[in-house]
Design a protein around this nucleic acid. Structure first.
Length: 470
DNA sequence: ATGTCC
């Protein structure tokens, strides 16, 4: 029987220092046996200065640095609302980009797939540490920080249509490269155009199921078609920007009279010197992340050219899931200027929203939700605009990296994936075990809960055929 | 997530 919104919504009433309630969208199956630490994080966020409506958590929620991953929190800028790096995450503007490939799965046999995966593994730098597709000068890096994916397309890597299908058209206009520290620049300079490690990956997939035919057609996806999905972020640059900002805010917070229940929730008013500096550096990091995905998408096109004889790969969408954005939303009957933190959560604009490009206005914003390695990726569309128009970002981790390493043997895992017909090109065996499906929640249940809650609608399910991992 | 501890 179909579940109602109430069936998947849990409220933690405002008590103690909480300014608003906690609202968690999840079924029992998506919560850990002992959710105490997770609920404590949702409650802690509800105490932040200026928070409005609720401390929300999406169905893929799990414990993170200060804020839960899967958390959505909006603060009222005019009423002392804060910005917190812990509410954005270390991998600033980490996100997912899917391209529709010019081939049907039935046209690609095992040998052709293996050739494509070899070409992709060769073309796209993956794994931790330095080494990227681009070799930017200091001036190039500054331009990427200021202009994002737009700078990459302007230099000839990609087409204008790529930007039409990239969140914010690939460029955050509040970015100030001058607010990105020297150490962050140094790390970023050596990594532009690289996947990284952890749960970051590049997959070749087949569209296995279309749930919403109209939206799938608008998004450029058809049953049986191949797709490529890129999951990565701002690498060491964003990580360093986050680290630097947490240090500054821990020290500055007291001067604004702010106390928080957890040091990891370090924050300052959005409208303060330190708040403005962080937002400018965060947006520059977001530009770096989108430029990174644009460069990798071009390398995917090159690999397709080599393996298929066609470079034609059409953007479905590029959505990010680690950002704080200034947005206007109606709260208690009045439209307000909010700073919306989405950490392990995405924007999901409903159909008809004025910020959507005309071609997407009829169906809503695309959202791409990668499952764990070897499991499905879902393409969704914004639905009712709940929780400041947000939805989930992935399967959500169930076991820590350490637990996963302990429980899962990499060779057994690799064999299992091979038996499923998934071609794996992995750099690190222990890294592979950390990303095993057993370490994650069931992504099908995550998106089903999003749909029941009215956060987003299911459009298409993509099954992996090959994966490149750090 | 991360030059997985300066």
């Amino acid at each position: 029987m179909a579940r109602s919104s109430d069936d998947v919504t849990r409220t933690l009433p405002a008590e103690g220092d909480m300014a608003v309630p906690g609202v968690i969208f999840a079924s029992q199956a998506l919560l850990p046996e002992d959710p105490a630490a997770l609920f404590a994080q949702v409650r802690n966020v509800a105490t932040l200065p200026g928070i409005v409506e609720a401390s929300y958590a999406m169905p893929d929620l799990h414990v993170g640095y200060g804020f839960p991953i899967g958390g959505v929190a909006a603060t009222d800028v005019a009423r002392g609302g804060v910005v917190s790096p812990g509410g954005v995450g270390f991998d600033i503007s980490c996100g997912v980009r899917t391209l529709a490939l010019p081939a049907l799965a039935e046209e690609v046999d095992g040998r052709a797939l293996a050739a494509l995966m070899d070409a992709l593994a060769e073309a796209v730098p993956h794994g931790t540490g330095p080494g990227g597709l681009a070799r930017p000068s200091e001036a190039d890096l500054t331009r990427v920080l200021a202009e994002g994916a737009e700078a990459i397309v302007a230099d000839g890597a990609g087409v204008a249509a790529d930007l039409d299908r990239t969140e914010d058209r690939g460029r955050l206009t509040g970015a100030d490269p001058g607010e990105v520290g020297a150490k962050a620049r140094k790390r970023g300079k050596a990594q532009l155009g690289s996947l990284g490690g952890g749960n970051h990956f590049l997959e070749v997939q087949v569209v296995e199921e279309v749930v919403d035919a109209e939206a799938a057609e608008v998004f450029g996806l058809a049953r049986g078609q191949l797709a490529a999905t890129i999951h990565c972020g701002s690498r060491g640059l964003g990580h360093q920007v986050c680290t630097d900002a947490v240090g500054v805010m821990r020290e500055a917070m007291g001067r604004y009279g702010i106390t928080v229940p957890d040091a990891q929730l370090a924050c300052v008013p959005v409208d303060s010197a330190q708040g403005r500096a962080y937002v400018a550096a965060m947006e520059a990091s977001a530009n770096y992340a989108r430029a990174n995905r644009q460069l990798i998408a071009e390398a995917v096109r090159d690999a397709c050219g080599k393996a298929f004889g066609s470079r034609e790969a059409v953007m479905v969408y590029d959505v990010n899931h680690n950002m704080a954005k200034r947005e206007r939303h109606v709260v208690d009957g009045t439209e307000r200027d909010l700073c919306v933190h989405r950490k392990g959560a995405t924007l999901a604009l409903p159909a008809g929203h004025p910020d959507l490009p005309a071609e997407l206005a009829g169906v809503g914003q695309p959202v791409i939700v990668p499952g764990s390695m070897g499991t499905a990726t879902w393409v969704l569309a914004g639905d009712r605009g709940r929780a400041f128009a947000s939805t989930c970002h992935g399967a959500g981790r169930l076991r820590s990296r350490k637990q996963a390493r302990k429980r899962i043997a990499p060779d057994v895992l690799a064999r299992g994936l091979a038996e499923q017909g998934v071609e794996v090109r992995a750099k690190s065996a222990s890294g592979l075990a950390e990303e095993a499906p057993e370490a994650y929640k069931d992504v099908d249940e995550v998106v089903a809960v999003c749909e029941a809650a009215g956060l987003s609608r299911r459009v298409a399910r993509l099954r992996p055929l090959g994966v490149v991992k750090g």
